[in-house]
Every structure is written in C-alpha cells, then in structure tokens.
C-alpha cells in the first residue's frame, strides 16, 4: 500500500493572453484569448510509507503544482491521485489532519507575537488533546533547539530561526505525510544542515512519508535515496539518486597533486593532452575527462608524472541534474 499514488496526473491552466499595447488591453476586457498551459502532464509515481523522496526540477517544471494537487489545494485536470487512501481535493478533515505543507517562501506564524501563541491556534484547529500537544511540542523544541526562540515575537527572529519555528508549527499535529516545498530556501549553510538533520530524524522516529523539493542539492543528497525529476510537467527520471548520477554524469574530474618540477616548467600546458584543465594552481590540477576514459587517463597520468596524490571525483550533482534537464 503506497502512501502516495498518482497516475497520469494532469493539470492544465488556462492563461489569458493578449498582445502588447493599450488597444489590445481594451479589447481583452471584452474578449479574452486563452491558451492552455500544461503545468503537469501525465505524471505517474508511487511513494511508500516512510520514504523520503526528493522532487527535483527547474523553476516552472510543475513541482509546486504537483505538491498542491497532492495536498488538496488544487483540483487536477485529469488522472488519479490518492494520498493515504484519500482523494486530496475533497479535503475531508480526516485527510487534512494527516498531512502538512511547508512552503519556504511563505509563512503562517503571526508576526507580532511569539510562536508559542500561534501554536495554540494550531492546537485548537487540529483538535489536539492537551497532553499529546505538550508531548509533541517538547519533542520538537528539543529536536530543533527552539527553547530560546518560541517565546520571542516572530518578527524578532532571524530567517533561519523563523523557519525552524514554522516547521515545528506545521508538525504539531504529527502528520504522516509531509510536503516540504523549498524548506531551506534563503537559509545559511548551518541552518540548512540543521533542518536537514531534523527532517531525517523526524522521518526515522515517526516513519513519516516526506516529499521534498529543494534547489540545494546538499539537501537532496543528505535526505533522499530516491529522486523524481520532472521538467515541463513530464517525468524524466524516477529512481535512486546514485543511479541518476551514474546514468547522467558524462564526465569525471581527476584531481592530481604533482611533485615539484613534474611539468618541467610547462605548467598546465603539460597536462592539456590528457583532458580539459579546469583548474591549475601551485602544482595542483583538476582535469575534466569523459567518464569512460577516466580509468585509462588516470593510469597514463600516473605513469607519465611524479604524482603525490590523485583523486577521481564525480561532478557536482547540480551539473548532473542540469544534464538530465537538457536530455529531456
């Protein structure tokens, strides 16, 4: 039994279109031309309970639209969608109590008062019994280090602190399915890591299903074994992150630490025949080579130069993802 099941999911927006200029603007008051935009175009996937899945795609790929359909905010144009046995857009209360949506760019805590008072509203709306609420709150405060934060007015918190409070607020009803839309956007590296660790821990403890979108590949790498890549509303890849890297990374980077005098004064020039020199400083060089030639080139380098150290690196995951988009 999947926690999330979608089949041939489709969302078509009607966009009003008009040409530039005042005349066209006036004409469009009476007669509007519309154009169909296929934001999500026949996506299928299943997510098992307790799984964390990274949902990737460039801006405008249809990620947020899909998340909104999964959380019941948007009515699909076509296809099936099922979350925890419910049809999301019917928005029955039983369903809404089991999910949560965190949007990194939007917040819901009341600006002028401490987060703890906003949580009270959440408790009443979700009918959380007082003892259960206290227990959950204690756990979240502990995991996210909120103790010094929840009694300060939200407007006095930093962006990272506020996001931590937002996330805690979104989890007070112990949802089983978490839709996290860019939860770390705009945060510094430490705050990002903190939230990442929290999501992992929360998932481990409560076996919650998590669907995460992020532009920070570090988030995806740390949390998601499985990734789903969409572009122009279509599914490009669904599988292991490691598999994605294998299939789409076209090259590797060989970093060599040369012994003094190894290039006989020719510098980077001496290495050019072996691959593209992307970096050369003080006897350390980074070479970009085609993936299938990496092993052969490595052995030639080791034979031709006195080398202190050599490492073979995968390209940054961002670049691989870009490769996937281009392929699609």
């Amino acid at each position: 039994m999947s926690a999330i099941h979608i089949h041939q999911l489709q969302k078509i927006y009607k966009i009003h279109e008009r040409e530039a200029g005042l005349g066209a603007a006036v004409r469009s008051l009476v007669k509007r031309k519309t154009r169909d935009v296929r934001a999500v175009d026949g996506i299928c996937f299943d997510v098992a309970p307790g799984e964390i899945v990274g949902f990737l795609g460039p801006n405008g790929a249809g990620k947020t639209t899909t998340l909104k359909m999964l959380s019941g905010l948007l009515h699909p144009t076509g296809g099936e969608v099922d979350v925890l046995g419910h049809t999301p857009w019917q928005r029955d209360k039983e369903f809404l109590r089991q999910i949560t949506l965190v949007m990194g760019q939007r917040n819901q805590l009341v600006w002028d008062i401490p987060a703890i008072d906003s949580y009270e509203l959440h408790r009443v709306i979700y009918h959380i019994p007082l003892d259960e609420y206290q227990c959950t709150l204690d756990e979240l405060v502990d995991l996210l280090d909120l103790k010094p934060l929840i009694h300060k007015p939200v407007r006095n918190l930093s962006l990272g602190e506020r996001m931590k409070c937002e996330i805690a607020g979104a989890l007070l009803h112990r949802p089983q399915v978490l839709f996290l839309d860019e939860p770390t956007i705009g945060l510094d590296v430490t705050a990002q890591r903190r939230i990442r660790e929290f999501v992992a821990e929360y998932n481990r403890r409560h076996k919650a299903t998590v669907l995460l979108t992020s532009h920070y590949m570090a988030d995806v790498e740390a949390l998601c074994q499985r990734v789903i890549v969409i572009h122009h509303g279509k599914l490009l890849f669904d599988g292991d992150l490691a598999d994605l890297m294998r299939r789409f990374s076209a090259y590797k980077t060989i970093v060599v630490d040369l012994a003094p005098g190894a290039t006989a004064g020719r510098g980077a020039g001496a290495l050019r025949p072996y691959g593209e020199v992307v970096n050369y400083t003080d006897g350390q060089a980074a070479l970009r080579v085609a993936k299938k030639e990496a092993a052969a080139i490595t052995s030639r380098l080791l034979a031709d130069f006195p080398i202190h150290d050599l490492t073979i690196q995968d390209p940054p995951i961002e670049e691989v993802i870009e490769q996937v988009f281009n392929a699609g």
């Binding site: 909104k68 959380s71 019941g72 905010l73 928005r91 209360k93 039983e94 809404l96 109590r97 999910i99 949506l101 949007m103 939007r106 917040n107 819901q108 709306i125 979700y126 009918h127």
Partner: peptide
C-alpha cells in the same frame, strides 16, 4: 494575492 490562503484552506476546519 500572496498565496498564503493555501495555509487556511489546508486546515481541517
């Protein structure tokens, strides 16, 4: 206008 209405609609009330 800002899209924060989503938070209201998603509440079980």
């Amino acid at each position: 206008r800002k899209g924060t209405l989503d938070f209201t609609i998603i509440k079980p009330a």
